[in-house]
């Protein structure tokens, strides 16, 4: 009867190997310079976002990236998770205008944005966005970390934002584009967006390029996956519960089968 177990385990292993190792390997495309792994606080089983960093990341998005990139799946009210008060959020939203209507007279009108509104996009449509950016479309950033998961996700965003430099001698850069060591083809239509001390963080942290890149990358990781913390918290409880349940079921099964063995 020794034969049964290895057989069972072996086939389980085969299928697991297929499901876990081979299937995801399909998303690996050819890459530029390697993307270094960053010590994100949201990695790992107990990982969670660094709230202060998220708030700074929002400030970077708001003051720098928002002039070109939309964040259309987020609402201003979502900022409550970052620790902003309702009054602060109402004030943040009110800086922007949205079109509403029609009113009783049938006219469209514009009003200040409310916490229940989606983040206001910088351009009316993709065509306008392209026209302002050398024909390249600045992608919506709500899911950018999930979309770039194959290239490294938040690690890639950090590498991209800190990856600008003068092109090497041999490289022929199309006028208007910038050289970036991790972007595909190395010529990107997004001009280097971050400069030393370009913004003043409200918590007084020094706005170095690395600091800003790290904060905004974490902010975008949160925007892509806002349920991460709740998911890990519930997941831990589920796994612990199932493990205890397993012990009980195991003892029960042994007692039942003791009668016939």
């Amino acid at each position: 009867m020794m034969k049964r177990k290895p057989l069972f385990l072996y086939s389980l292993l085969c299928s697991l190997l297929w499901a876990c190792v081979l299937a995801p390997s399909l998303s690996l495309a050819a890459e530029q310079a390697t993307v270094a792994k960053q010590p994100w606080s949201f990695r790992g089983i107990f990982g969670s976002f660094d709230k202060a960093s998220l708030r700074r990341g929002y400030e970077v998005y708001d003051q720098v990236c928002a002039s070109c990139h939309s964040l259309r799946f987020l609402h201003y009210r979502d900022l409550e998770t970052l620790g902003y008060s309702r009054a602060q959020i109402a004030a943040l939203a009110a800086r922007l205008e949205v079109e509403d209507g029609p009113n009783d007279e049938g006219e469209m009108f514009s009003r200040a944005a409310l916490p229940s509104d989606r983040f206001v996009a910088p351009f009316a449509n993709d065509e306008a966005a392209r026209t302002a950016n050398l024909g390249a479309l600045p992608p919506d950033l709500s899911l950018i970390v999930a979309q770039l998961a194959g290239k490294g996700g938040a690690d890639f965003i950090y590498a991209l934002l800190t990856g600008y430099s003068e092109p090497p001698e041999s490289f022929e850069l199309t006028p208007g584009l910038s050289y970036n060591k991790v972007f595909k083809g190395n010529a990107i239509a997004m001009p280097a967006p971050l400069f030393e001390d370009m913004i003043a963080y409200s918590d007084g942290e020094k706005a170095s390029v690395e600091r800003m890149a790290r904060d905004v990358a974490q902010f975008l990781a949160w925007a892509s996956d806002p349920s991460l913390e709740q998911r890990k918290r519930i997941g831990l409880r589920v796994v612990i519960f199932l493990t205890l349940f397993f012990v009980v079921a195991f003892l029960y099964k042994r007692r039942v089968w003791a009668r016939v063995r």
């Binding site: 499901a19 876990c20 299937a23 995801p24 399909l26 998303s27 089983i45 899911l143 999930a146 979309q147 770039l148 998961a149 194959g150 892509s224 998911r231 890990k232 519930i234 997941g235 831990l236 589920v238 796994v239 199932l242």
Partner: peptide
């Protein structure tokens, strides 16, 4: 549960987020 809670997008193609 480990997949659902700790690697929910592991088996997903990143392009499907576009």
């Amino acid at each position: 549960a480990v997949i659902v809670f700790y690697a929910p997008n592991y088996l997903n193609h990143p392009d499907n987020a576009i």
